[in-house]
Design a binder for these strands. Structure first.
Lengths: 156, 156
DNA sequence: AGAATATAGTTCCATATGGAACAAGACTGC
DNA sequence: GCAGTCTTGTTCCATATGGAACTATATTCT
């Protein structure tokens, strides 16, 4: 079974070669990591757990801060308010969330995870920890510390 | 001007604290970098140059490989074929692209950048190089080499 | 050669996404 | 106290996105 060249005139494009010639290699690498790893991971979560990105983001934030408003989550994650509004309603309907009006401010509502939501979060975390392990597999312990430090520095 | 606490009972959520407690910190950091940097950059390109992600991806690939088929671009970037089909048509209509049927295979078409497309690419590259410079500003030269090496290793 | 299979590109459709406008509640300064 | 302004959460809408089916061409196998 002969593998044809991908196009007649030029050499078959080796995706890796992009990294050698692109003018903003590190940004391109981060973007590539995203498309190759982060996006498919969101996709897998959607497929296996039935929640979309905004819902997952909500879950993650509430698992780390016991009580938040939708606006808080928006600020933490930079996700638009309307996407989070939808997410809150769907998570409420699924029983992953509890919501109670803030007595001191009639506009906002205090959100917390229900036990069911906490269970879902634990499942997803297990999945993501495993996925991160696969991603970082090429690095040894010292290199992982370096990467962690460098990524941390990028957040200022 | 007093800044109110973001919610009544708990401490105001410090987004950075997520990095301390999340169970998959590095994956989260990469994802966060994406949402905070890569996505807004795509957004700025869309706003300022009027092209969307698939179109930008097409432009970038063709700037680095002189002639490709749409399928090649799909393989390089892992972007679905139909998104690229749309992108090709819009870039053709805008005059950024040339397309000629492959004489040896009636199914595929050979794509190349027009001079206009090359000009657009140069503008966008200048923008992205500047943006990367801002992103990497917190790192010194040695740290940048380290980061580059580590990100490279992650691609196996 | 002809049937079965594979591939490139396209179209159709369902859904995710975010901007903008809006309503209700809260704050500001006079 | 109240007019003007700001903030939260919501709805409406336009668009980006990708899965799946489809057409036309190419390849493989007998």
């Amino acid at each position: 079974m002969v593998r044809r060249q991908l196009n007649g005139a030029a050499a078959p494009p080796d995706p890796a070669r992009m990294f050698d010639t692109v003018e903003f290699r590190d940004a391109y690498r981060i973007s590539y990591l995203t498309n190759a790893i982060v996006v498919p991971t969101y996709e897998a979560i959607r497929r296996d757990f039935g929640i979309i990105r905004a819902e997952y983001v909500l879950l993650l934030c509430l698992a780390h801060f016991p009580v938040l408003t939708a606006r808080d989550v928006s600020r933490i994650t930079r996700m638009p308010r309307n996407s989070l509004s939808r997410a809150v309603h769907r998570m409420l309907a699924e029983g992953y969330l509890d919501r109670s009006p803030d007595p001191s401010d009639g506009r906002q509502a205090r959100l917390t995870l229900s036990p069911r939501g906490r269970g879902l979060h634990e499942q997803i975390v297990a999945r993501l920890v495993k996925r991160q392990e696969e991603i970082l597999a090429p690095l040894n312990v010292k290199e992982r510390r370096q990467l962690d430090r460098l990524l941390g520095a990028l957040h200022e």
